[in-house]
Amino acid sequence: MIDISRELQVALSTGKVILGYRESIKAVMDGSAKLVILASNAPVEVANNVQYYAKITNIPIYVFQGSSWDLGAAVRKPFKISTIAIIDPGESNILALASQRGG
């Protein structure tokens, strides 16, 4: 089982990670994202847009089983985060989440 918080921390420090919906959707649309992590309580419009563009560009989505506050806490930020795009996983094993659908 993957420790998502730990793998996110490793990806943040050794790779390239984009936090937030607007920048994440740009990364999905230009194909640079390798994985999108979506908070389970992301607003419907945000979730629908991410799912639509990710499907077109064939980028996997992992639904984080926690709120946007929990996702923010997982990356040690004191605010809500609905969407995270992994551009470069660095030394993390975060892309293994691509084969899972939330958990």
Rank of each mutant, 00 (worst) to 15 (best):
G66Q: 10
L71Y: 04
K55Y: 05
N41T: 08
Q9V: 04
V63Y: 07
L71M: 07
I81K: 01
T14D: 14
L71Q: 05
E45L: 03
Q65G: 08
P60K: 12
G66F: 04
D70G: 09
S67A: 11
S24T: 10
S32P: 06
V50F: 01
V10A: 10
I25H: 08
S32E: 11
V28R: 08
V10L: 13
A47Q: 04
V10M: 09
R22W: 10
K26E: 15
Y62W: 01
L35M: 06
Q51G: 04
A47P: 03
L12T: 11
V28D: 14
A85W: 04
T14F: 09
E7F: 11
G66E: 13
N49M: 07
I18T: 13
A39Q: 04
I84W: 06
V50Q: 04
E23V: 02
E23G: 15
I86M: 08
F79D: 11
V44L: 09
P60A: 08
K77H: 07
E7C: 13
I84T: 02
T14E: 14
T83V: 15
L19Q: 13
D70K: 04
Y21Q: 07
P60T: 03
V50L: 03
S24G: 15
A73Q: 07
L38P: 09
D70R: 03
A47D: 07
L71H: 02
Y62H: 06
A42V: 01
N41M: 07
V44H: 06
A73F: 01
A11N: 08
Y62D: 02
L38W: 05
S40G: 03
G31F: 07
V63E: 14
N41G: 10
I37P: 06
S32Q: 11
A73I: 00
T14A: 13
I25C: 07
I59A: 03
N58I: 01
Q65V: 02
A73N: 09
P43A: 03
R76M: 12
V44F: 07
L12H: 04
N49S: 14
V10C: 08
P78L: 02
S67V: 08
I18P: 08
I84Q: 08
V17P: 15
K55S: 15
I61W: 08
S40Q: 14
K55F: 03
N49W: 00
Q51Y: 06
S40P: 01
D30N: 15
N41E: 14
K55E: 14
T57R: 15
G72Y: 04
G20Y: 01
N48E: 13
L71P: 06
Q9C: 06
K34M: 04
E7W: 09
S40A: 12
A73E: 09
T57F: 07
I56R: 13
K80Q: 15
A74F: 04
N48M: 04
V50P: 03
V63L: 09
S82E: 13
N49E: 15
F64G: 02
K80D: 05
